[in-house]
Design a binder for these strands. Structure first.
Length: 484
RNA sequence: GGUCCCGUCGUCUAACGGUUAGGACACCAGGUUUUCAUCCUGGCAACAGGGGUUCGAUUCCCCUCGGGAUCACCA
């Protein structure tokens, strides 16, 4: 097996969204699976579009997700530098080689002249091709004019590891710019040179590059070099499914998902499964499993929509599988105000009872804050509940009082889940009430939260004293509610 | 518009000529003498359309329709 080297080559023009991450992830998986290398290369050849700090942001995104590269701009490597702006002499050198071979020439036209050619072609309803205006005696290339590729138009067919056999006619072949007048190469040229020099074996990229691939093929030929394996990913579509996911349309920065309480296992699993599956009915894959099971052959050819509901479900699944100590660490920045101040032991105890219910870490305050601080009664929550809304003021009062009277009899030593459960059940018969009503009311009186752990668990953790005092303050607030 | 790619439940997908078209998310209904949530069980729900090829097409071919990408001194 030849060695596998893949790369992720973003341009530092901002953040990375899930589409970009998926491309990076697949390249990473492919390399790791073959015990090859995954490299990060920054394609910063358009200084106009460059966004300050985005290289650090991209690096952080990859680190956060655990997509670790073996070589890159910040860590170096045998093929350094990994920033295209630092490799300019390489492109110039190859450009000169092409000139010498008669396969590249300086562009003598001004931008205005080219615009004129273009509009003329458009008026005649013909596709504009620069090569129709190829100059007979181009000036010498001195670096101040664009260097253009002298293409050899012909139909071509090639194999793509994901898309299968692809083809295109000669009408798509043109004399594209290799090196711009500012001395920087275009993507079209730079990526080919870098992939060659960095010995990249597999190029994994988005569908938007299919259209220009025939031109790359033409260039590989002119350069007389072997091309890497090409693998083209279908796009990830936006939520409405009518467009490729893009920053302009509000595609989120992947780092935002972490801020929103998603964890890396879920993100990786979810992103990988948009367009890939192993053919079985398995839904949950760890990074290690992805590395061993991934294959380009099983990547689908049609675009996938981003379904956040599924991500949320998956996140809950992964949170559930976390070791408690691990969850504690990850939850650190997500606690509510009071939870923030609680001791580690308290947090741990609370986490134990809520772990199964967490979908995202941002659920934490809602689900736990009442354990640490006195909740504010909100009778609207009672009225919003189908069963509870029907329970009248007097009955509410009676139920809360009976609950307090009954629970006060449970001794501190017996304040455990089993006893509490039994006590609650007795209360059910005593008051001749249906569980949804009695327990629903007590749950709210104790937590005033939209959702919470089981009642006996909650009461045990709260302790006898707090449980009783909350029942009392609920009773009191009910009185005030009525008066007001 | 030219060129190219794609088309299975609402969504992510399995199927590589013969299946009651499978799973998951979402949704709905029950259950766990306990609410919300979790969990369990069940239900709803798809081969874009039309022609071929074949004993037999979701699967192969053609056309139509639909969706997307791309046509820069951006990547």
């Amino acid at each position: 097996m030849t060695k596998v080297r893949t790369r992720f080559a973003p341009s530092p023009t901002g953040y990375v969204h899930v589409g970009g991450i998926r491309t990076a992830l697949y390249a990473y998986l492919l390399a790791k699976q073959a015990r090859g290398q995954f490299v990060l290369r920054l394609e910063d050849t358009d200084k106009k579009r460059e966004v300050e700090g985005s290289d650090a942001h991209i690096i952080k995104s990859l680190h956060t997700l655990g997509i670790d590269y073996d070589e890159g701009p910040d860590i170096g490597g045998a093929y350094a530098p990994y920033r295209q702006s630092e490799r300019l002499e390489h492109y110039i050198e190859w450009g000169k080689k092409l000139v010498k071979k008669g396969r590249a020439y300086a562009d003598p036209y001004t931008p205005e002249e080219i615009r004129a050619f273009r509009s003329e072609a458009e008026q005649n309803k013909k596709a504009f091709l620069y090569r129709h205006h190829r100059p007979e005696n181009p000036p010498e290339w001195d670096g101040t004019r664009p260097l253009r590729f002298k293409s050899e138009p012909k139909a071509c067919a090639w194999h793509d590891a994901v898309m299968g056999d692809l083809h295109a006619g000669e009408e798509v072949i043109d004399d594209f710019v290799l090196i711009k007048s500012d001395g920087y190469p275009t993507y079209n040229f730079a990526h080919i040179i870098d992939d060659l020099e960095m010995e990249i074996s597999h190029v994994i990229r988005g569908q938007e590059f299919i259209a220009s691939t025939p031109n790359y093929l033409n260039l590989y030929e002119a350069l007389e070099i072997d091309r890497p394996v090409l693998a083209t990913m279908p796009h990830i579509l936006n939520e409405t499914g009518n467009k490729k996911l893009g920053k302009r349309d509000g595609a989120k920065d992947v780092l935002d998902y972490f801020r929103d309480g998603f964890i890396e296992e879920a993100m990786l699993n979810f992103i990988a499964s948009m367009g890939w599956n192993d053919g079985t009915e398995q839904e949950l894959f760890s990074k290690e499993e992805l590395v061993s099971k991934f294959s380009l052959e099983r990547v689908g050819r049609s675009g996938a929509r981003f379904d956040e509901k599924r991500l949320i479900w998956m996140n809950g699944q992964w949170i559930k599988r976390l070791e408690l100590s691990d969850l504690l660490k990850r939850a650190e920045t997500f606690w509510g105000e009071a939870g923030q101040k609680a001791s580690e032991a308290e947090r741990k105890a609370v986490l134990t009872v809520v772990q199964d219910r967490l979908k995202t870490l941002t659920d934490l305050p809602n689900l736990t804050e009442f354990f640490f601080t006195e909740p504010t009664p909100d009778w609207k929550m009672v009225d919003d509940s189908k069963q509870l809304a029907k329970v009248l003021y007097k009955n509410r009062l009676d139920l809360l009082r009976s609950a307090a009277e009954k629970l006060v009899q449970v001794s501190a030593e017996d304040w455990n889940e089993e006893t509490l459960q039994n006590t609650l059940n007795e209360l059910l018969t005593d008051t001749n009430t249906k569980p949804p009503v009695l327990f629903g009311l007590i749950r709210l009186a104790l937590t005033w939260a939209p959702f919470s752990p089981g009642l006996p668990e909650t009461m045990r953790l709260l302790g006898k004293e707090i449980t009783l005092s909350r029942l009392q303050s609920a009773t009191k607030s009910l009185g005030e509610e009525r008066a007001g």
